Amino acid sequence: MTDNNYFKFSNSVLLVPIIAVLSIWTVYWVELQFKINFNNFGVYPRTLSGLKGILFSPFIHGSLKHLYSNTLPLVVLSAALVYFYKPVAFKVLFYGTLLSGLITWLIGRPSYHIGASGVIYLLASFIFFKGVFAKHYRLIALSLLVVFVYGSMLWYILPIKEGVSWEGHLGGFITGLFFAYFLKADIPKPQKYAWEEDNYNEEADEFLRHFDENGNFVEFKPDDDPELDTTSSSPINITYHFKKKTEE
């Protein structure tokens, strides 16, 4: 499999981010429109009723600022996931969301944990570590881009800001690392040049045949093309034609 066959744009690259964003914004609109509060559908740690939040919490946000801050990263990272890791993208999104929510349920403070930030940390962690583990130049470049743009998010897996579910962030981060290491993706190997192959034969290389034993480039090889044989003893006749300039 080559890079061109693997890294191909498809409708899902746009469809997945659009569905994700419409989902979280629709839920928030329903809350405002009908004056409903869905916070009790979030993850409430170590309670049986709080388990439902593993499924529902990523769609619930406490404020417009909270919703807006999660929208752009969700779009960018989910699109990157589907484009670069399409064969495993839906496994990462679905099972990763469940596992990160379960970790939050196990380690979280006794409070409702809501928001898509756990999923965002899941995606950022997976994309970064998978690129490092794959050792593919394009995926490593993507990993570096994630670090450059979202590297500051790493601090929020620690309890440094009150009111922020660092447990959800940590759960997403751990899950992304876990999936990056254990989830196998059929990633193409970087394309090699002919001389990098194990069975490369220098003598059969048409380009190298244009060099002599001293490394000097020769335009052609007489032995390969009899029509260009320069060893012939036939004389070469050169005829010059002079035209006398006429006076005006």
Rank of each mutant, 00 (worst) to 15 (best):
I36D: 05
K221G: 03
K86H: 13
R46A: 02
T104G: 04
R46N: 14
Y121Q: 00
D3S: 14
A80Q: 09
V146H: 10
K245M: 08
S23D: 01
K91Y: 10
G42F: 03
F179H: 02
I60D: 10
S100M: 12
V149S: 04
Y95P: 07
P226F: 13
V43Q: 00
S165P: 05
Y95G: 13
A116K: 06
Y44V: 11
L144T: 05
V92Y: 08
F94P: 05
N4D: 15
N4Q: 15
L55G: 02
F59D: 02
I174M: 14
V132K: 02
N201C: 14
V119K: 02
S23Q: 06
S233D: 11
L208S: 00
S117Y: 12
V75Y: 02
G176L: 12
E31N: 09
D198H: 08
V30M: 14
V82G: 03
L158A: 09
I19N: 11
L22N: 06
K244A: 00
E162H: 06
T47C: 13
G172T: 11
F179I: 12
P226Q: 15
L158G: 01
F90C: 05
Y193C: 08
L144A: 06
K245A: 15
S63L: 02
E31K: 00
I236N: 14
G115F: 11
D225I: 10
W29I: 10
A185E: 15
L72W: 11
P110C: 00
